[in-house]
Design a protein around this nucleic acid. Structure first.
Lengths: 154, 154
DNA sequence: TATTGTTATACTCTATAACTATA
DNA sequence: TATAGTTATAGAGTATAACAATA
């Protein structure tokens, strides 16, 4: 799509389609913002989970963000080349890395969180504080149950 | 992502990210369903708008679903090869087509709408009727305003 | 024999630019 | 000169398979 614009009324009937649409709008908007500090959405996800989980294996991190191993390689490559993450050797398993966040990684993450809040504010501008909280709760319920989804019927 | 599963808690803080995530879950789930009747998400969007707008030009249809002209060509090719849409010549402009939906297109659309309702029911299963209506209203507000978004700051 | 991470490869989706036939 | 549609191509993003080092 050449820039998400207005959704045709005919495509507005199904709430699932609405969610997909707003998901595209949101991720496009957000990725434009964090691009200004050299981040992609994938890097963003990895950086956040790494921050929460501490030194962790590349495979475990990939599993946590639902990214396959080969995509992880290039994502970590990017983060490392920007000095945000270090690949150190795992102390007891010489096949594996222990990924560490650098000081610059932490600074970038902090700056990214500011941008993230800004982007969210713009995205949710049409909603009142109460409505934002409502939306957030509803989405959390859906996300919590989304693991049981996605398998096509027999 | 190898199949949307659970979202890591660290990525749950930002509502914008939540929307993106659920958008991926929803569109993956939905596209798996309509694949069973030979439709892709793009074909689905075009079919719905074509149904609403009646015979229409390829370019106008592309604008209505925010799809660039070259992507429209392959999408209409698919629809035409499945006998759902016909490219007839525009009565007064021989450069343009007037796209017509066939009877089979209408049948597929009707069947797709059933699948769409089913998929929506599964996606929104964790929500009560009242919550579903809430979510729908909130998303409509956001979608209505999404045109003003997406441009990065100066 | 299995696992961690890597490489090479391919497939999908989407966008860009150059082209044709009309206007 | 501009527009409707087409073609060829290139760029993301993501997935698969084969591989080296280590377990």
């Amino acid at each position: 799509m050449p820039g998400p614009q207005l959704l045709h009324a005919a495509l507005t009937r199904n709430t699932g389609f609405l969610i997909s649409w707003m998901g595209l709008v949101s991720s496009k908007h957000f990725s434009e913002r964090i691009a200004s500090i050299g981040l992609t959405t994938r890097m963003w996800g990895v950086l956040n989970v790494l921050d929460a989980e501490g030194p962790i294996t590349q495979g475990a991190l990939g599993a946590a963000v639902n990214m396959d191993p080969s995509s992880m390689v290039s994502t970590i490559d990017e983060l490392e080349s920007h000095g945000m993450v270090e690949r150190r050797r795992h102390p007891s398993d010489r096949r594996a890395y222990a990924l560490h966040m650098t000081e610059q990684g932490r600074e970038t993450l902090a700056r990214g969180r500011e941008l993230s809040r800004e982007a969210q504010g713009e995205l949710l501008a049409p909603l009142s504080e109460e409505e934002r909280a409502q939306l957030r709760e509803l989405l959390l319920k859906l996300a919590a149950a989304s693991g049981e989804l996605t398998s096509p019927p027999a």
